[in-house]
Every structure is written in structure tokens, then in C-alpha cells.
């Protein structure tokens, strides 16, 4: 039994957890900003896919990975703006719009990818991001090679978590975001523009979803496939709820899910699995549904989530 544990828990395992958690952390933080401002963004699954595609395409055509990152982030911001246009400016129902944005962006991703790269038997790939060891820190035993010998995007994600917490809890803009998500009427009376703040939060969320998508095609798989996102956006929706709309807890939830996912991959590879690996993949969804029931979601969710704000309707 101990041999099994040794086989599973190695430096490589720890590094795998960090790598699986990175796109989820970006996506979860993105969705969290949007929801804290009162806008559920079910477009996340499609936005991630479209950004994964545009990032990969830009990197592949230009030869510059960072140009790919810029393309993915800009795509995410544009799709965020589109979702905000429908849900914030026009006040349309958030869940149906979100499904619309997901259908539209994934369709567009498939269409443009096929148009640009044609139908090839082996999907084209790029030379993705390489790991960058951080001097001194990467020499720490076990933790060093796992955490501090990673892709630049991983470091960005690690920085993004405290940064998101700081922005949300310690800046005037973060206060505005929380206000328009909790009580838009009061925010409006206090002179906060509900529409502008929600737009900004959803667009910032889109940018983070863009980084999530870009990580998949430019660091993890180095190619675009139609199943490259395969439900990670829905996982992020679950993780935001599970993390109670808090940056630290959401990131923690992403790490927890990454641990389960990495464990499942190891067990599959080592042929130990008597339990089907799908059972592990189901876990975050089941946990979240149970958690919602236990904590009675409405108590912690932003009060104005799913509610459009129209100034004239008093």
C-alpha cells in the first residue's frame, strides 16, 4: 500500500495539481468577479473555448506566444462586453443569454478554426510555454520543483489570487462591485454607476476566462481540439458557488478539484482504478449541489445575482 502512495504522491503529482488548477483558478476568479457584480455568466464555457482558439491561432500565425495571450484576453473581454451588453444594458435574462453566448462562441471557435486550419488528420500544434524555474525558490525540496518550476502563466495565476482578493475587498472599485451585486439601488443612490461597474466586472471576468482558455492551448496541450475545454467552464461555475464567491475560497476549491482530478489521472495510469475515473470527475458537481442545499445558497450569494437593474423602475 505504501508503495502505491509513493507512486502517486511525488513531485510530479504536486506539479500536476498546480497545472490542472491554473486554468480553473483563472476561470473561477473571472466568474467570481462577474457574479459578485450581480451577473451570472453561463457564457464561460464557450468564452474559454473561443479564447483558447484565438490565442492558439494568434500564437501559431505570429510565432509569438505572448501575442497569443493578448489575443485570448482581448477575445475574452469582447465576449464579456457582449454578455454585459445583453444582460446589463438591455436587462435580458442572464441564464438564457449565457447559454446563447456559450452556443455562439463555441460555434464561432469551431467555425473559425476549421476555416483557418482546414481539416487535418493530425491537429497542428505549437511550441507552447516552457517552464521557468525561479532562482533559489525552485531549490526548495519537493515544493520547489513542483510550484516554482512552472509556466509563467502559473505564476500569474498564483499572483492573481491575492490580487483579486485585494481588488475586491480593499479598493474603491471592489467596493462598488460588491455594492452593485448586493444592493444596486443603494449603490445607485450612493452615486455608483451600476451599469458601468457591472460592465467593468463582466469584462474583467472575460479577460480572466481568456487566460484560462489560453493556458489550455498554449501551455497544457499546445494544440486546439474541439474538446479542449470539455466542461471546465461548468466546473468553474460550480467552484464559485463552492468557494462562496470569495477569491481565496474559490481558488482553494480549484486546488481541491485539481487534486481530485490529478489523483484520478494517476489511478487511471497506474491501473489501480476499480472505481471508474468518471466518479471522480462527477465529484465537484455533486459536492457543489449538496453544498448549495446545505448552506442554502441564497444566504451567501450576491443578493442581486440574476436581477437586472433598471434605474427608472423604482
Amino acid at each position: 500500500m505504501s508503495a502505491v502512495f509513493e507512486q502517486i504522491f511525488q513531485v510530479g503529482f504536486l506539479a500536476a495539481i498546480i497545472r490542472i488548477a491554473t486554468p480553473l483558478a483563472f476561470a473561477t476568479l473571472g466568474e467570481m468577479f462577474s457574479e459578485r457584480a450581480g451577473v451570472l455568466n453561463l457564457g464561460i464555457e464557450g468564452i474559454m473555448l473561443l479564447c483558447a482558439m484565438t490565442g492558439f491561432t494568434a500564437a501559431s500565425l505570429s510565432g509569438s506566444l505572448w501575442l497569443g495571450i493578448v489575443a485570448a484576453v482581448l477575445t475574452g473581454m469582447a465576449m464579456g462586453a457582449l454578455h454585459a451588453l445583453f444582460t446589463v444594458a438591455l436587462g435580458l435574462s442572464q441564464h438564457v443569454c449565457g447559454i446563447g453566448v456559450t452556443l455562439f462562441s463555441s460555434g464561432l471557435a469551431y467555425f473559425l478554426y476549421r476555416l483557418i486550419f482546414g481539416q487535418q488528420s493530425v491537429p497542428p500544434s505549437i511550441k507552447g510555454f516552457q517552464t521557468v524555474p525561479i532562482p533559489i525558490l525552485s531549490d526548495i525540496p519537493v515544493l520547489g520543483p513542483a510550484v516554482f518550476n512552472q509556466f509563467a502563466l502559473v505564476y500569474m495565476a498564483i499572483i492573481a489570487i491575492p490580487l483579486a482578493a485585494f481588488v475586491l475587498y480593499r479598493t474603491p472599485w471592489g467596493l462598488s462591485v460588491r455594492m452593485v451585486g448586493e444592493n444596486p439601488r443603494a449603490a445607485d443612490s450612493a452615486g455608483v454607476s451600476v451599469m458601468a461597474t457591472r460592465f467593468q466586472a463582466v469584462i474583467l471576468g472575460g479577460a480572466l476566462m481568456g487566460l484560462a482558455g489560453a493556458f489550455l492551448t498554449m501551455a497544457q496541450f499546445n494544440a486546439f481540439t474541439f474538446g479542449v475545454v470539455s466542461g471546465r467552464g461548468w466546473v468553474a461555475i460550480a467552484l464559485v458557488v463552492f468557494g462562496r464567491w470569495d477569491p481565496w475560497r474559490s481558488a482553494g476549491a480549484a486546488l481541491l478539484f485539481a487534486f481530485v482530478d490529478a489523483l484520478q489521472l494517476r489511478m487511471q495510469a497506474s491501473g489501480l482504478g476499480h472505481i471508474p475515473y468518471e466518479a471522480f470527475l462527477m465529484l465537484p458537481f455533486i459536492f457543489t449541489i449538496v453544498a448549495m442545499a446545505v448552506m442554502s445558497r441564497n444566504a451567501v450569494a450576491p443578493s442581486a445575482l440574476l436581477k437586472p437593474f433598471r434605474r427608472e423602475e423604482r
Partner: peptide, 26 residues
């Protein structure tokens, strides 16, 4: 869940899609 625990049905019904999909795959 909505009737008994006031759980938002948008998210719970969406997340169940993934649960059922993985059950089918299993």
C-alpha cells in the same frame, strides 16, 4: 432543491448535466 432548500435551479440543473454525462461515460 429549489422547493425545499431555496437552491437556485439555474445552476443546479446545469451542473446535473455534467453529472449525468459522466455517469453515461462510466
Amino acid at each position: 432543491l429549489r422547493v425545499k432548500f431555496k437552491v437556485d435551479d439555474v445552476v443546479s440543473s446545469l451542473l446535473l448535466n455534467s453529472v449525468i454525462y459522466y455517469a453515461l461515460m462510466a
